[in-house]
Amino acid sequence: MLITPSDLKSYTDFEAIKERADDKLEKDILEAEVEIEGIVGHDFSESQYNPLPEKAKLALLKMAQFFALINSDESIVKGYKSEKIGDYSYTLADGNSIRKPDVLSLLKGYIKDVPPPSNEGTIRMRLRSL
């Protein structure tokens, strides 16, 4: 793991997260790591990321906090339309869930370019208006 439950507990101001069991926080952190890997296109296990850069760590903490909040909030399961946890509030509308934190600006320097797919074996069409 890139961050620990104690890192997350020291970062957050939410009592619900501070009181959450470490084994559950580890699962929340794992969800956050998978989400961050999806954004940047790699994991941070390479030696150039040891220690983990502060911007990436902050993005991971924010994402882990989000997952810990939604995983510990039973009002989402009960189908409440709105809820407030401290200063953090959200509204659910007909089965939609709350939005994840926007961490793209923190991670933009770590996004790896994915090579474009090969055009070999594909059909290419040109269209023009008449």
Rank of each mutant, 00 (worst) to 15 (best):
G41F: 08
K81R: 13
K100L: 00
L30A: 13
A68C: 06
I111Y: 06
D28P: 07
V40N: 10
L69T: 03
D43T: 11
E31M: 11
L92R: 14
E33D: 07
A59Q: 08
T91D: 10
K57V: 03
L30R: 14
S89F: 13
K100M: 04
E35R: 15
E31D: 13
I76H: 07
G86I: 06
D28L: 01
N50K: 10
D28H: 09
I85T: 14
D73C: 13
Y49V: 05
D94K: 15
L69S: 01
K57I: 03
S105M: 11
Y88N: 12
S97Y: 09
I98K: 00
E31I: 02
G109T: 10
G95P: 09
L60H: 01
E46V: 10
Y49D: 07
D43L: 09
G38T: 11
R99K: 09
I29W: 06
D87Q: 14
T91E: 14
F44A: 08
M63W: 01
N71F: 03
Q48E: 15
T91Q: 12
A64F: 00
H42W: 08
V103S: 06
D102Q: 03
K84G: 11
S72L: 03
P51L: 08
I85F: 01
V114Y: 07
P53Y: 01
L52I: 07
